[in-house]
Simulated scan of single mutants.
Amino acid sequence: MESAAALAKELGRWNEVSDFYRRASELYRECGRSQPASDALAKGASALEEKAPEEAIKMYDEACSLLEEDGKEQMAFDLYRTVAALYVKLEK
Results as ranks from 00 to 15, higher is better:
residue 1 M to I: 11
residue 2 E to L: 11
residue 2 E to S: 07
residue 2 E to P: 01
residue 3 S to E: 14
residue 3 S to P: 00
residue 6 A to R: 14
residue 7 L to K: 09
residue 8 A to N: 09
residue 9 K to W: 10
residue 11 L to F: 10
residue 11 L to P: 04
residue 12 G to K: 06
residue 13 R to M: 10
residue 13 R to E: 10
residue 13 R to A: 10
residue 13 R to L: 12
residue 14 W to S: 05
residue 14 W to R: 04
residue 14 W to I: 12
residue 15 N to Y: 04
residue 16 E to I: 08
residue 16 E to D: 13
residue 16 E to K: 07
residue 17 V to N: 02
residue 17 V to G: 04
residue 18 S to P: 01
residue 20 F to A: 08
residue 21 Y to L: 09
residue 22 R to V: 13
residue 22 R to H: 10
residue 23 R to K: 11
residue 25 S to C: 13
residue 26 E to H: 09
residue 27 L to E: 13
residue 28 Y to I: 06
residue 29 R to M: 15
residue 30 E to A: 13
residue 30 E to Y: 07
residue 30 E to I: 09
residue 31 C to F: 06
residue 31 C to Y: 05
residue 31 C to D: 11
residue 31 C to M: 13
residue 32 G to L: 09
residue 32 G to C: 08
residue 33 R to H: 12
residue 33 R to E: 14
residue 34 S to A: 09
residue 35 Q to D: 04
residue 36 P to K: 03
residue 39 D to P: 00
residue 39 D to I: 09
residue 40 A to F: 08
residue 41 L to P: 06
residue 42 A to M: 06
residue 42 A to D: 04
residue 43 K to R: 15
residue 45 A to H: 02
residue 46 S to I: 11
residue 47 A to H: 11
residue 47 A to R: 07
residue 48 L to E: 05
residue 49 E to T: 04
residue 50 E to N: 09
residue 50 E to G: 01
residue 54 E to K: 07
residue 56 A to P: 04
residue 56 A to C: 06
residue 56 A to R: 01
residue 57 I to A: 05
residue 58 K to N: 10
residue 58 K to A: 10
residue 59 M to W: 06
residue 60 Y to P: 00
residue 60 Y to L: 03
residue 61 D to A: 09
residue 61 D to G: 02
residue 61 D to F: 04
residue 62 E to S: 11
residue 63 A to F: 03
residue 63 A to H: 04
residue 63 A to E: 01
residue 65 S to L: 12
residue 65 S to M: 11
residue 66 L to A: 02
residue 66 L to R: 01
residue 67 L to D: 01
residue 68 E to I: 03
residue 69 E to N: 11
residue 69 E to I: 00
residue 70 D to S: 13
residue 70 D to P: 02
residue 70 D to Q: 04
residue 71 G to E: 02
residue 71 G to S: 03
residue 72 K to F: 00
residue 72 K to Y: 03
residue 72 K to R: 14
residue 74 Q to W: 08
residue 74 Q to V: 08
residue 74 Q to H: 12
residue 75 M to D: 14
residue 76 A to R: 01
residue 76 A to Q: 03
residue 76 A to V: 03
residue 77 F to Q: 14
residue 77 F to W: 12
residue 78 D to N: 09
residue 78 D to H: 11
residue 78 D to I: 07
residue 79 L to P: 01
residue 81 R to W: 15
residue 82 T to Y: 05
residue 82 T to S: 15
residue 83 V to Q: 08
residue 84 A to V: 14
residue 85 A to K: 14
residue 85 A to T: 10
residue 86 L to A: 05
residue 86 L to V: 07
residue 86 L to D: 03
residue 88 V to Y: 09
residue 88 V to D: 11
residue 89 K to S: 12
residue 90 L to R: 11
residue 90 L to M: 15
residue 90 L to S: 08
residue 91 E to P: 05
